[in-house]
Design a protein around this nucleic acid. Sequence first.
DNA 1: GCTCGCAATTGATCACTGTTCAATAAAAAT
DNA 2: ATTTTTATTGAACAGTGATCAATTGCGAGC
Lengths: 195, 195
Amino acid sequence: MARRSDHSRAELEALILDEGHRQMAETGFARFSAREVAKRIGYSIGTLYNVFGSYDRLILAINTRTFQLWAAHLRARLAEDGEDRIKALVEGYFSFARGNPNLWMAIYDHRLPPGTPMPEEFAAQRAELTDIVIAEVAAALPADAREKAAGLARSLIATVHGHCLFALNGTFLLMGESDPFGAALQRVRDSMAAA
Amino acid sequence: MARRSDHSRAELEALILDEGHRQMAETGFARFSAREVAKRIGYSIGTLYNVFGSYDRLILAINTRTFQLWAAHLRARLAEDGEDRIKALVEGYFSFARGNPNLWMAIYDHRLPPGTPMPEEFAAQRAELTDIVIAEVAAALPADAREKAAGLARSLIATVHGHCLFALNGTFLLMGESDPFGAALQRVRDSMAAA
DNA sequence: GCTCGCAATTGATCACTGTTCAATAAAAAT
DNA sequence: ATTTTTATTGAACAGTGATCAATTGCGAGC
C-alpha cells in the first residue's frame, strides 16, 4: 500500500491524527472506527497501531486536538469582544460545542479503562482551558473576593457544561427549554453577583 | 435451552430487563453486551431480539427503569427530611449518581440514532423527574416569582447535572475540586436567592 | 390419544469492531 | 553485494449487534 519513505514518523502521526479528527467530526464517537481511518489514509491497521499503540491513545490524541481548538476558539472570542468577557466565555463554550458537536461530545464520551490515569499531555490541555476561565473570573470579581476565583471558576464551568450538554443531547428539548445559552449565562451572573 | 412454557411473554420481558439492568450496573454502558444478558438468563440472542426488537430498545428499557429508581430515590429523600427540601433534592441527585454510577451514566452515554425521536414512555419518565424539581422550586420561591419556577428549575437541574457529571467522570479530580456537592448546592442557592 | 398447525425459540451466518504478531518488504549499514 | 535493521502488512482471534430459515414444543381439534 504505502511506501516506507512516503512519510516520516512525525508526518505519519499527523496524517493519522488529521484523518481521525476529520472522521470523529463526521461520524461521532459511537461510530468511529480505527480501521476506517487506516483505510482512508492508505495504510493498514497494523501501522496505525504501531504509531499510536492502542485505540484509547488515538482517541486521546484526537480529543487533545479538539481541546486545543476549543481553547483557541475561547481566546479568539475574548479578543474580539472586550466588553463583557464573562459573556464571551459562556458564548465561546456554547458556540464551539454547537459548531463541533461530535468532536465536543467525544471528549466526554470517551473514558479510559478504570484505574488508567490520564496522561500528562491531556491533563495539561484541560488545565489550560480551566486557567483561562479562572483568570477571567478573578478579573471580574471584586478585589476582596479574588481568593474564591479558582473554586468559583471550576463550579461555573460545571454549570455552563451542564447547560451545554443538555442543549446538545436533547434533554432541554424534551424539557421544553428554548434558550440554554441564556439560562447558562443567567446562572453565571447570579453566582458572580453573589460572590 | 429454555422451555417455551417456562415464562410468559411478560415474565420473559421482566427477566431480560432484570438481568440487563444488573449487568449495566456491573459493567457499564461501554462493556454492556446483549449476548451476555441472553446467556445469563439461559435464552438465545434471538429470543432477546424477538422481545425487545433492537439493542436500542433494550437499553432504553434499562434506562427507563433507572429513571424510575432515581425518581423514587428523590422522593424518599424529600420525605425523610422536611427541613431543607432544595438541599435534599441536590443531595438526592448526587447520592443516586454516586451510588449507581454505571446506571446513571448509561442514561447519558446512550444516544438514539439521529432523527429517531424518544419514545413517549421514556419521555414521560424524564418529565416526571423534572416535575418533582419544578414543584419544589416553585414552593421555595417567593409568591411573586412563581412564574419563573419551571424555567429556573430546568436550569438548576442542568447546573447540578454538570457538577455531578464532573464529579463522576474525573474532571473535577483533574481540576482539583474536592467538594462537588457543596459547590453545586452553593450555585443553586445563589440562583434561588437572585430569583 | 393423536395429529397437526401455529407460535416461540434457536443459533449459524453476516458484517463489523479492536488487537496481535509472524511474515514480508524496504531501506540502511556493512 | 550482503547483511542488518526497521517499517509495514494483513490474516487470525475473540468479540459485537443484527437477521432469519429451521427447528422445537405447546395446545386445539379430531
